[in-house]
């Protein structure tokens, strides 16, 4: 465990807490893509299959349970909570996210470390996580006003993966010197998808203006 990875995990956790707080406090999920949240549930379920079979550390186990639990809670709020679900605007959440599942799964069948169920699904979860933010970014581009909490949520989500890239650099040069192409490449693709969001987010922050993504 190094500082970059710990900071990355904490930023990831923080992004989820920001989102849960937004939904719980405002009883609204406007501007949030349910599709991205559903993809995250699939990512965590396929990523943490070894939750009960392999013990890495208490930290690891606790964080996995928290990530699975919170992502379920967010989807539950947006789908079933009597007040929140009315604030979900499905006509602006238009991305065909199920079209992401098959390519990621096929790619995992072709490109993986070991051809085992656990490893193929773990690899699938990495590829899926890389593109899971797409419905949310598309929604932000279409929605008129992006409220601060939603903007912060996406920012911290991107920052977490950026910190993981630093963690991989640190681990490779200072620790185990082992290349892990699959997490590296999917993590870089994921971080790259945030690049333009980061640009407009920081620009709006510097100009003290409302965040607006070009359509």
């Amino acid at each position: 465990m190094n500082l970059f990875r710990l900071a990355g995990d904490m930023t990831h956790l923080f992004s989820i807490i920001v989102l849960l707080l937004k939904i719980h406090a405002t009883k609204s999920c406007s501007g949030i893509s349910l599709k991205t949240q559903e993809l995250y549930v699939i990512v965590f379920l396929t990523r943490y299959l070894d939750l009960f079979t392999r013990f890495v550390s208490l930290y690891n186990t606790v964080m996995k349970i928290v990530f699975i639990g919170t992502s379920f809670a967010i989807v539950w709020y947006m789908r079933y909570h009597k007040v929140v679900k009315q604030t979900y605007n499905k006509d602006e959440d238009t991305f065909k996210h199920y079209f992401l599942l098959l390519p990621c799964f096929v790619l995992a069948l072709l490109l993986h470390n070991e051809f085992t169920t656990m490893d193929v699904l773990w690899t699938f979860s990495l590829y899926l996580e890389a593109v899971a933010i797409l419905p949310q970014l598309v929604l932000l581009q279409q929605s008129r006003n992006i409220d601060n909490l939603t903007g912060n949520y996406v920012f911290f989500l991107g920052a977490y993966r950026g910190l993981y890239v630093l963690n991989w650099i640190y681990r490779y040069f200072l620790q185990d010197h082992r290349a892990r192409w699959i997490p590296w490449i999917s993590g870089l693709v994921q971080t790259a998808l945030y690049a333009d969001f980061f640009y407009y987010y920081i620009l709006s922050w510097k100009k003290h203006e409302k965040l607006k993504l070009p359509a």
Binding site: R47, K64, N167, R180, I182
Partner: peptide, 10 residues
């Protein structure tokens, strides 16, 4: 063991 090490991350 080699690949499992890669899975110590979240």
């Amino acid at each position: 063991a080699e690949e499992h090490a890669a899975k110590d991350e979240l």
